[in-house]
């Protein structure tokens, strides 16, 4: 390479490498952006404080509960009721039924998503089975509780919030990294 072309060539090659890195940097950037804005419907991965704000009895919000096991997940997984009407600020408990019809122990991880996405920032979970992985021996069933409230600051255009859980079979990952619980929603 002629010497005089070298500086520019190197600069361009470094730019290309930097852009390769930028592609990967988009992954954490996206998560930060979504955490700040709640745009992709992901709810907080950790518990909200239990001191709810004032209860706003002047309006009601319908919460719809959707739950489904992922295709590879053999559990039966459903909410006790499919909808509930709440006042913003009120703390409620909702139980999900899980049943493992197979003959072996399976570890499940539920991943929540709120729709419309912008409402995700206003849906607070005080206690949730989705914060940790759940083990269930073959043939057993259990109730998994969710304790939540809706933020009174929820903008008024939202009258219905859908909370959907997809349950994944993470037995293999659990065995590999035994007992290191991963955080959902990261």
């Amino acid at each position: 390479m002629a010497l005089r072309h070298k500086p520019l060539t190197v600069k361009l090659a470094v730019t290309a490498l930097a852009m390769f890195g930028f592609g990967f940097a988009l992954v954490p950037l996206y998560d930060v952006f979504c955490d700040l804005t709640g745009l992709n419907g992901k709810t907080a991965a950790t518990a909200a404080s239990a001191e709810a704000a004032m209860i706003d009895t002047s309006r009601q919000v319908v919460i719809e509960f959707v739950a489904r096991p992922n295709k590879q997940m053999p559990w039966v997984f459903k909410p006790e009721v499919s909808r509930m009407t709440v006042h913003p600020g009120e703390i409620h408990i909702m139980n999900y039924l899980a049943e493992n019809p197979t003959g072996r122990m399976i570890v499940g991880q539920a991943v929540p998503s709120v729709s419309p996405g912008q409402a995700a920032l206003y849906f607070h979970k005080i206690e949730c089975f989705c914060f940790t992985q759940q083990q269930l021996a073959g043939g057993k069933n259990m109730l998994m509780p969710l304790q939540f409230y809706v933020d009174p600051a929820l903008p008024s255009q939202f009258s219905t919030i859908t909370l959907s859980y997809t349950l994944y079979d993470v037995t293999n990952a659990w065995q590999d990294s035994s007992a290191v619980s991963t955080q959902p929603g990261e």
Binding site: T15, A16, A18, M19, F20, G21, F22, G23, F24, L26
Partner: peptide
Amino acid sequence: LIMVMPVLAGVVTM
């Protein structure tokens, strides 16, 4: 090309 082809390479790698 220099700005975006590396991003394509990144996403196929993912």
